[in-house]
Amino acid sequence: MKRILSGVVAVLLSGTAAYAADVYQPPIEAPVVEQPVEVVQASGWYLRGDVGYAWNDLRGAHYFQGSNGFIKDFDSADIDDSWVIGGGVGYQINNYLRTDVTLDYWGGGDFEGSTTGSCGVAANCVSTDISSVSAWSLMANVYVDIGTYGAFTPYVGAGIGGTRVKWDGLRNTSCEVGNPGNCDPTVNHGGKDSWRFTYALMAGTAIDLTCNLKADVGYRFRDVDGGDMFGYAQSGGPGYDKGFYIHEARAGLRYSFGNVCEVPYEPPPEPIVYK
């Protein structure tokens, strides 16, 4: 009898274990499905403001000398370095292309030049010519944003427009070469102003400060055409400058309107499936 009962118990226990093995399965995690990445195109209006330092290169100047209308170059003609401040409004077309219109003031460029020739006190004289120049530039610009690397977006650009150059009056004093104390009275020539064609080339990088605010540091080259410089006075003038090359180191801010912040996509956690 004991043998029979033992055999029945053994059969029942083996059947229960086999059933439990069939029922229990370890949890299986569902495969992660990669979600397509949506490329968000940046676009919208922005405002900008900039300041800079300008290294100025005057390409020369000439003037009419005497009643016969003889035109002569200045022996020397230089302007000091100066500063630039400006602002503008622009539009980000997409992630790689933007455009803006800017208005800049360029000021404080002191001019000093000299000429040689006869004057009222001697046949061999040298002059000292003093003035200063300032300008407003209105430019239409286009930029290519090369790509974004972390917080940095390098770019290149170009622009065309006009520059209103304003010369102050020129003070001309001619003195004998061998006797610098023997001088003509100072002659004052009225300053001139004129619009000039201008083009510009730019390169730099934008730096993300917040979602809407970027710092902008870069370089700009401007080529300003020549034009009127000063008027006629006492058998001298008028005078004309031959234009400027202006090299600028610039820094500024750009503020973009609208919601330009991008939140990275995070897929929801997949539930654990028990089989």
Rank of each mutant, 00 (worst) to 15 (best):
R3K: 13
I4A: 08
S6G: 11
V9P: 06
A10V: 03
S14Q: 02
G15H: 04
A17M: 15
P36F: 12
S43E: 00
D50C: 00
A54H: 04
W55T: 10
N56S: 06
R59F: 09
R59T: 00
Y63W: 04
S67W: 13
F70C: 02
K72R: 07
A77F: 15
D78I: 08
S82V: 01
I85V: 06
G86H: 09
Q92E: 05
G107C: 01
G113K: 04
G113P: 12
S114I: 01
V121Q: 10
D129H: 14
I130L: 14
N141S: 12
Y143F: 15
I146K: 09
A151V: 14
A158I: 11
I160F: 14
T163V: 03
R171N: 07
T173W: 09
G178K: 01
G181C: 10
C183Y: 13
D184R: 09
N188T: 08
N188I: 07
W195I: 00
R196K: 11
Y199P: 13
A203N: 00
L213K: 01
L213F: 12
A215W: 08
R220T: 14
R220E: 11
Q234R: 14
S235A: 09
S235H: 12
G237K: 15
D241L: 10
F244V: 08
I246V: 15
I246N: 05
I246H: 02
R250G: 03
Y255I: 05
S256V: 06
F257D: 07
V260K: 11
P271G: 05
I272Y: 15
K275S: 12
